[in-house]
Amino acid sequence: MELTEQQKDALTEVINIAFARTAASLSELTGHRVLLDVPNVSIYPIGELGAALAEFLPAEVATVHQVFSGPVMGDALLLLNYDGAVTLADLLTEEKVSSDSLNASSREVLTEVGNILLNACLGMFGNLLQVHVSFSVPRLHLETLDALLRSLVIGSEGLRYALVVYTAFRMRDSSVNGYLVIALNVASLDRLIQEAEQYEERQWNTN
């Protein structure tokens, strides 16, 4: 499945705005400036997702999953390298966690951070595209990239494609790097593309 240039432009614009909101939320939470790379939008068949993610992710990842439903439905993931997750939890908790592990309190903090960031991103999507999405309770997983991919595929039979919106964010003065991935089924992907194109039309008409 290939996106036309115009579709890709429209999606990238919507995603840019949504991620800017996400970065602002992370910055508010941590008090650190967050640097965001230009999001890279690609579509992969689920079977090829592993190889695609392995290019930029380490083998051990901490992820927060949030399933969302509505006119556009799928699985949104915030992925952090394990050391980055420890550092982020450390920044947000008063007591210092041990340097190489995540205790119960740190896990709780990361889950809520994931909730806030994924809602910021998908909520902005909803606002821009004028669709309403409902969120499931966020879940934190500490696992290998392979296990993560298996859970994504096994848990969601309808997910045949993944829209990988991949952006690296870095917090200044810290080693936290993260990625956001949104996996969608075919119908949702079609709807998202349609809505993104309409968003572009609306922008054009209001200017």
Binding site: G123, N127, H132, F135
Partner: peptide, 12 residues
């Protein structure tokens, strides 16, 4: 008090 920033959720 929610992370959901959607206008539609606020209306709801």
């Amino acid at each position: 008090a929610s992370a959901d920033i959607q206008s539609s959720t606020k209306a709801l």
